[in-house]
Amino acid sequence: MAVTGMRRHVRRSLLLLTVALFALASIGVASAQVGTPKPITDEAKKIEDLWIFTLLIAAVVFVAVEGALIYALIRFRKRNDELPVQTHGSTVLEFVWTGIPVLIVIALFTYSFIVLRDVENTAAAEDMTIEVQGFQYQWQFTYQLNDLGVNADPAASGEISVIGTAAEEPTLVIPIDEPIEFRLLSNDVIHSFYIRDFLYKLDVVPGRDNRFVITARETGDYFGQCAELCGLNHALMRFKLKVVTRDEFDLWVAEQTGGNGESAVRRAD
């Protein structure tokens, strides 16, 4: 009699536990799939790998600890007034559950250190540099005509400048498959240059020359936005990103300069 009651109880606990774990696991899976940005650069792909690795460890820890918690609540709920055994602790256990997190930390740190080294590249002399000026409350993208990457003419003079306005978001155009350096500058307050599908942002700090390098691998239309509160219209500091082939990029440059090497300033239209 007592054995059947016990077995029924265990079976019910296991059922509840399974349901709970299933629910929790599906939340984990859902969060991996829903709303994940599309990594469009070499660097973003590495960051996404690290993200997935971290998420897996997080999911295991979450399911294990939350599972143990739910199990304890069901299994050890109060049934009578008997005082449970008064255990005060266990040095062995303390070492074990200090050790396990230490190992997890070492694994996570090592991998994230490797990825950090891989994604923080410096530009070579021939790589294109685009100057990004953040200002309250828009962006200006400036391309030097003698610094346009593979097909650049070192003798060219002038620049292409795309300035956003309150009415119109600017479009940042970059070519695919070549390293591009962004140089971030601000003269007013701190902004942050954030493109979701780069999985990357870097602050635009007055008085600092912050740079980063990416190589885009997917053409298409993307978006970016200021990610550091910069005042009244911070929410409107949005811009578009267009990743195009080299040919399309050269064509775009020619359009902006009217076919000659003169400087051209183009307002977003």
């Binding site: 609540l73 602790g89 997190p101 230490v102 930390v105 740190f109 250190f113």
Partner: peptide, 29 residues
């Protein structure tokens, strides 16, 4: 980054100690 990960260790110890407190206890809600 490393030091931030490290914070997880004592925090984890606490979490396990709380679980250990309830383990084989007589839990009321």
């Amino acid at each position: 980054g490393f030091m931030t990960f490290m914070i997880g260790v004592p925090t984890g110890v606490k979490m396990f100690n709380w679980l250990g407190t309830m383990w084989r206890g007589s839990i009321s809600f």
